[in-house]
Computed example of a mutant assay.
Amino acid sequence: MKMKLAWILFLVVAVFNLPTTAKAQEKPTILVLGDSLSAGYNIDVEQGWVELLNQKLQQEGYPHTVINGSISGDTTTQGLLRLPTLLEQHDPEIVIIELGGNDALRGTPPNAIKRNLSKLIDTSKRSGAEVLLLGIQIPPNYGQRYAQAFFDNYAQLANEKKVKLVPFFLENVGGNDELMQDDGIHPNVKAQPILLENIWPQLEAQIKNAG
């Protein structure tokens, strides 16, 4: 009788420990929430910087899985609508936020863009994720005052929210005709490794700290 009772207790303990064990075996996740710059506009998805990041992580021996939650044309408002579901589905360790450019192209006031980016950061942090914010610049033909206010949003938020920042995601790419598509807005295939290089130092530091 004692043997049977001990066996039953063992099964109960094992069943209750199953979710914890399964969760421990799950690979940590990096979620990329972006627009066409991260969705791989007009190029094969496999050639985009997000997929190159997946490959880089494997090469460097990191166990992380990358989820690309980017959609071409997305604004910060649309990102806010989609983010809660993505967080619930993937429970990311790190969220990379690359949004704001389409808001600026539509002439959205910089302070409104900043509010939305702030909410994206707060929502990500409440889920337990670290945040890496990618800074974006727009051409000065939108007006120097507007362009500067838009660009300043990213550094201000990184300081206020205490999150990591890549000051200019398109560093060494933007304005270089050899690395841009004909529209002058979207990076081409040759630019994708450079985009990854721009974020990798900050991202790897976050991965190591999280570990």
Rank of each mutant, 00 (worst) to 15 (best):
I207R: 09
N176D: 14
D152L: 04
Y62N: 01
A39G: 02
V166E: 00
V45S: 14
G69L: 05
L157M: 13
G40V: 06
V131E: 06
E130Q: 15
D74R: 01
L170I: 11
T76A: 07
N188L: 12
I8W: 08
L52P: 01
E26M: 08
N153T: 05
G184A: 12
M1Y: 08
L99C: 04
E171C: 06
D103P: 01
V173Y: 01
L11G: 03
N176T: 04
R115Q: 11
Q181G: 07
T76D: 04
Q144R: 12
R145H: 11
P167W: 04
A149M: 08
A24P: 04
K23I: 12
P109E: 13
I30N: 00
T29H: 07
G135W: 02
L133M: 06
G40Y: 05
E197N: 15
T75K: 06
T77D: 13
W7E: 10
A129V: 06
L99W: 00
E88V: 10
L87E: 07
A210Q: 10
S127L: 08
P109F: 06
E26F: 00
M180A: 04
V12I: 14
A14Y: 05
N111V: 15
P140M: 06
N188D: 14
N111I: 14
V166G: 00
F151E: 15
S127H: 15
K4H: 11
F16K: 07
A129D: 03
Q55P: 02
P19W: 02
S127V: 11
T77R: 11
V166D: 00
I71V: 15
G61H: 07
R82I: 02
Q55G: 05
E88H: 12
N159M: 13
Q55T: 09
S118Y: 03
W49R: 00
I97K: 05
I207P: 07
V166Y: 00
L31W: 10
T20I: 09
L86P: 11
D35K: 03
K4R: 14
G73C: 12
A6G: 08
V173G: 01
Q47L: 08
A191I: 01
P139G: 10
D91Q: 15
G128D: 12
S36N: 12
Q78S: 09
Q202I: 01
D122K: 08
H90C: 09
D103R: 06
N116C: 04
L83Y: 00
T123Y: 01
N209T: 15
K114G: 04
D182H: 09
N172V: 13
S38I: 02
S36P: 11
S124M: 09
L86W: 08
G174Q: 14
L33S: 02
T108F: 12
I71R: 10
N42K: 13
E171G: 05
R126D: 14
G48V: 02
N42M: 12
P28L: 01
E178T: 14
I94K: 03
N102F: 11
V15Y: 09
N54T: 13
G143T: 07
Q59S: 09
L196D: 06
Q25G: 07
I194L: 14
L37T: 06
E93F: 02
Q59A: 11
L105I: 12
L134T: 03
A112F: 08
S70H: 02
P201E: 09
E171P: 04
L31P: 05
E130R: 15
F168E: 07
Q192A: 13
A158F: 12
Y146A: 10
M1V: 07
